[in-house]
């Protein structure tokens, strides 16, 4: 029986810590000439808490998103479509769910129908994976490079983002452009949700609000992006020659201050929007109409 008590986990951590210290004895804070201190960190606060929370939330999201992407069902309940499946571009899409038509035929992998979500999720996934905020989050919490400030990392070598595959982080701007297209499509989905299940306009339901909130969060996340800030004006040397771009840069800079918050809110928003649509599609709940 595995022992998961606090003393047992502490013992395991100390053993690992000692092992990696031996491994790293010749470099980093243990390098020759630096102050001879045997601890990897002398921090007394709960420095491990933030990376642990980040790790847990991201793992939970990845687990849920993977299940939903492969489920290939319960993503459409007129007029609502899950953000994981929009735009639905495959012949495998359920009738009425395709906003842009069917670009891909049905095909099977290992006897399973290839889920329409798998054609499109690479774009939002790539946008978040290369996002400057998420890079900080997962470098710290998954790769422990470093796990927290002034806490020695457990790697003997480090080359940063200078080599493959991490040099691909420089493609962030292309994912940003793709993300804008997705935002337009998801906003369209939210507008189309001002219809009822018979496709008649002039109605509004809880689902409408859910999709509107999701699209809004995603716009804030995209517009507060560092690449957006650079594109609208950050690359300029002389703001005085470009007053409109300077104003745009100033506005995006204000949003950029909260980019981390928008990153989390929009991530959770996408998951909750999907949960809502799934619950409606499986008839677990009824999409309540205000009018």
């Amino acid at each position: 029986m595995a022992d998961f008590t606090v003393p047992a986990l502490t013992r395991i951590w100390r053993t690992l810590d000692k092992g990696s210290r031996l491994l790293l004895m010749a470099t980093g804070v243990f390098s020759q000439g630096r102050a001879k201190i045997t601890e990897r960190t002398l921090r007394t606060d709960k420095w491990w808490l933030q990376p642990l929370i980040t790790f847990s939330v991201l793992i939970a999201f990845i687990f849920y998103a993977t299940l939903r992407a492969f489920e290939n069902a319960n993503y459409f309940a007129e007029p609502l479509i899950s953000p994981f499946y929009s735009p639905c571009l495959s012949d495998a899409c359920v009738p009425g769910s395709s906003l842009l038509g069917h670009l891909f035929p049905i095909f099977h992998v290992w006897g399973m129908t290839f889920s329409p979500a798998l054609f499109i999720l690479i774009f939002p996934l790539g946008f978040r994976m290369t996002c400057y905020y998420y890079r900080k989050a997962y470098y710290r919490s998954f790769w422990m490079s470093p796990p927290a400030c002034a806490v020695a990392e457990p790697h003997a070598k480090y080359t940063g983002e200078t080599r493959a595959p991490l040099i691909m982080q420089n493609m962030h701007r292309y994912f940003f452009y793709a993300g804008l297209v997705f935002n337009v499509l998801l906003t369209t989905d939210a507008i189309l949700a001002f219809r009822n299940s018979e496709k008649q306009w002039g109605h509004m339901s809880v689902g409408t609000l859910v999709l509107l909130a999701n699209a809004t969060f995603l716009w804030f996340y995209s517009l507060s992006c560092h690449t957006c800030r650079h594109t609208v004006g950050g690359r300029l040397r002389n703001f005085s020659k470009h007053p409109i771009r300077y104003k745009a840069w100033t506005l995006v800079s204000k949003l950029n201050h909260y980019h981390q918050n928008f990153a989390w809110v929009s991530l959770i928003g996408v998951a909750l929007a999907d949960v809502y649509v799934r619950e409606v599609a499986t008839h677990a709940i009824t999409n309540w109409y205000f009018f």
């Binding site: 900080k136 710290r140 490079s145 480090y158 080359t159 200078t162 040099i167």
Partner: peptide, 9 residues
């Protein structure tokens, strides 16, 4: 510059 992985410490 490419070695920085923007962990913001």
């Amino acid at each position: 510059l490419g070695m920085c992985n923007i962990t913001k410490c």
